[in-house]
Write a protein that binds this DNA or RNA. Structure first.
Lengths: 249, 249
DNA sequence: CGTTCGTCTTGACCCAGATCAAGGCGTGCC
DNA sequence: GGCACGCCTTGATCTGGGTCAAGACGAACG
């Protein structure tokens, strides 16, 4: 994992005698706070976190084949992961929003199996994985959380694998973004698409032109309002209905 | 996880004074043996394994929504996992051969997120997950192996998600089966397709007719020889070349 | 302020693979 | 044996979304 030299600092601990605080992203993604650790343990947990960034648009966080040393939670911004095939064509694997964790698929190989790039200005909470695994042997709550995170991603990866129409994929994509933003306290109905149409298309296994056409049609049908990268979900009801097969509900 | 009452027994321990043995499937999938445990630890590891089966063709091992209690390694036979959408259409998620582990995606939810059914006569090594997680806190090697297994599956799930042609998908499917059989000591070039054409098609997001046609064409081109469910890979070279984008190599 | 470049849209056409239809072929059961 | 039912194959046709081509629109920059 590449770290911009301009900002690399340990997670600042607010140690005011009685309490230690994690930033909300660390807390959210590692769920450390839920498990009732004592102060010594909290201090240990703190040292494995490092706040890094900002990565600016287009800057890589890690590249395929690099040695795996850390997973990271997104604090702000959007990260795209992708691979390139033998003909140099890009395949987008996922978009990671604030609170979401990148790098998990690297554990099994010891190397990152894909590239991760910032789509806008990105701040990360970086967790040294060897340290984390070592701590996990003494903190069952942390181990359980790691198992959960890993297992979750297996399920997520299976979603877009299905045999769905362009409309279903697009609806699922929008509903998913909406929910994920909402989970972190952002608006569920208005947000910015931080990725290009080409990225969306590639992720959904469509052509960029199809993305454009589907969005246009969704707007004509009163499902959404879209202007360049700003989008508003108007009829969440019907969008969710369209997405239900993809999202499995 | 449903266990056929006719056969449910603890992993028989060959405790001949000095050594404990795992069945090769347990050893292979849990990698317990690699980690230099002492005898007391090995005994603990043994009790979390249970050999169950046979499940006969069509019999379910677990169903979507059931409470998660165990992961399992396939000892013999083939397991298919699938989900059903709102219109009752099946979506095949994967096929699991001897040595492979089912149930990992259930960890995050505490419930199985899909159905698992035996495609032929299936024997399993069943690992109680709560017990395993508890042991893992004391056995770093076991924890690491669990992390590896989980992380591996994230990568696997991403494979068939890509934007590939029917030929590429089919070639990748055959090469993947071949390698997975070879890894467990079976022939890499001749094996039996234990699933129907419809299952293969569904898994590869094709129509059954397309599977039939592609296999036929592969045979005419001298890549394979296929007769009903028996298949022989003739030109592994060219098949692998066809599959290289899907398999990422 | 105009130029440029990347991004996005829109239309026309095309094709891989789906769907529909019609058997063939093994296997198990009466 | 012969009947029936899955499973598989093969051919004919159709279509969702890809591809190609041609701009439109904005943001960044001189």
């Amino acid at each position: 994992m590449t770290v911009p030299p301009r900002l690399r600092r340990p997670n600042p601990i607010a140690d005011d005698g009685d309490e230690l605080h994690f930033c909300s992203t660390c807390a959210f993604s590692s769920a450390c706070l839920d498990s009732g650790y004592d102060k010594a343990q909290l201090r240990e947990l703190h040292v494995l976190v490092e706040h890094v960034g900002p990565y600016k648009e287009g800057e890589h966080i890690f590249r395929e084949g690099e040695e795996f040393n850390a997973i990271a939670a997104v604090r702000s911004g959007t990260v795209k992961t992708y691979v390139t095939d033998t003909e140099g064509r890009e395949q987008v694997q996922g978009f990671f929003l604030p609170g979401e964790v990148i790098g998990l698929s690297a554990i099994s190989q010891g190397r990152y199996p894909c590239n991760a790039v910032a789509l806008d200005s990105v701040m990360l909470c970086r967790f040294s994985f060897p340290t984390m695994a070592a701590l996990a042997t003494r903190m069952p709550g942390l181990q359980a959380q790691l198992f959960r995170l890993l297992s979750q991603d297996i399920g997520k990866a299976a979603l877009l694998a299905g045999n769905y129409s362009a409309d279903e994929r697009m609806a699922a994509f929008l509903v998913s973004l909406s929910r994920r933003y909402a989970a972190r306290g952002f608006s569920a109905s208005r947000f910015r698409l931080t990725m290009t149409r080409a990225d969306i298309a590639n992720y959904l296994r469509l052509a960029a032109e199809s993305v454009s056409r589907v969005l246009r049609r969704f707007q004509n049908d009163g499902l959404i309002r879209v202007e360049r990268r700003d989008i508003e979900l108007i009829d969440r009801e019907r969008l969710t209905a369209l997405a239900r097969n993809v999202l499995r509900e």
